[in-house]
Design a protein around this nucleic acid. Structure first.
Lengths: 232, 232
DNA sequence: AACAATATCAAACGCCTGTTTGAATGTCAA
DNA sequence: TTGACATTCAAACAGGCGTTTGATATTGTT
């Protein structure tokens, strides 16, 4: 291993590593794992193309280490978990705002959130780890708040689906940003609109959680109705 | 082989075209435009690799024609638009169920819905056309129903965001299916669970639309509060 | 039957990808 | 300085991609 003793004016090794890690986070967050190319990463980091394989072994291993460091960085920056003794509504509020900032913000702070949003749509080998390490804990936290808000009359499945409904609203602004920009360019859905967006999702979701009717067992709203079978 | 008697057993020209169009729809819906390869399409269609460029000119042109025919097919199969004289709640119900079936169903029927969901996350040259041809009309239809349900007290932006909240809930089951499978495998989120899923989204959304509080102008729930600034 | 137009085919092309190579350079300990 | 090691570099590699080619086979028309 390297580890030169004493101080070095130029300790290239560590510099190149860190530079690559940082630049790769930027490029992966921008293009996703598959569309990002090692040549683009190395060009931005101003290092030779061979550097990635020398320092990390492969593009995939670099990606995994980027996720690792981005995770740690994000965990410091966005500790979504408000203290447990806050009322569930406050916890939900806090979660939604920090969750959305986590992928709408600009700069390194949002890399992990963007990578997570991409990993959902276009999974890589990292998905399993990301689910257990990041997504499941957040899901548990959110589920507990939602359960308290909804009261005791709903099944676990209904609660889980309500959590999905909340997350789905949030992720829409990440996954469908290209469509939003074309469809409703007047709506501020970027980083500076995160507060507005979160505010709407919170009001929408709290109203839903507090007023959603029970699902009549065995009866869907469409039972016996085929209103959209226009084609034969 | 024998007996090429009478009518052509193989009328290659049109057959190859249609076979390619159909197979390409399947492969594009499964992998998306970029990840799908012309070699895989041709392999499944059992035609030579040169066939795509001979009959369509390019992979991209094939994709555009696949979208065209998938659009027409889906428009016949899922005429989401319930008649305008139905109450808005019924129109919303109908839209959500048929929208979700549009990408959760199996087989050709769902190709257009799947391609649309992919196009949102990973736009191609086809996005603009898809927005104007499919997404915007649906958005208008849904917006009108939502506006009627919410009453006259909300701004256009609040209504548009509420539409996003509904669409976002639906698309979550398409965009995050890999995560759902890992996180909550017990929940039925596939084609046969579309009714359940739609039912939940409808109840959740109707409750939200009917009980959502007005946004106090200039005051977000977080005004002056920085509860998640854990890092310095 | 014979010709011209159309369609299929195996093979190759040019490009881009992640990765490897082997020589050159830099760094530290003796 | 010397030798050993770590790092950088230009260049090449192997493989996949969409596409093109030129020969071959099939079709429609006369």
């Amino acid at each position: 291993m390297s580890m030169q003793t004493s101080v070095n004016i130029k300790s290239f090794s560590e510099d190149t590593r860190k530079s690559l890690l940082s630049t790769a986070g930027e490029v992966f967050a921008e293009f996703g794992f598959h569309a990002a190319t090692v040549r683009e990463i190395c060009r931005r980091a101003d290092v030779n193309v061979a550097a990635i394989n020398y320092h990390f072994g492969s593009k995939e291993e670099l990606y995994l280490q980027v996720l690792e460091s981005a995770h740690n960085e994000a965990a410091r920056k966005y500790p979504y978990a408000a203290s447990k003794d806050e009322p569930p509504e406050k916890r939900l509020e806090g979660f939604i705002l920090s969750f959305m900032q986590g992928f709408l913000d600009k700069g390194r702070a949002s890399w992990h959130g963007k990578l997570m949003a991409r990993e959902m749509v276009e999974p890589t080998v990292a998905l399993k780890r990301m689910v257990e390490r990041t997504i499941r804990p957040r899901n548990v936290f959110l589920t507990e708040a939602v359960r308290e808000i909804m009261g005791g009359k709903f099944s676990d499945e209904e609660i889980a689906r309500s959590v999905f409904s909340i997350i789905g609203q949030c992720l829409f602004y990440s996954h469908a940003s290209a469509v939003i920009a074309r469809l409703k360019p007047e709506i501020n859905c970027g980083a500076d609109g995160a507060g507005q967006t979160a505010s709407h999702i919170i009001r929408f979701s709290l109203a839903a959680l507090k007023h959603m009717p029970l699902n009549k067992k065995g009866v869907t709203p469409f039972e016996g109705v085929t209103p959209f079978d226009g084609a034969k």
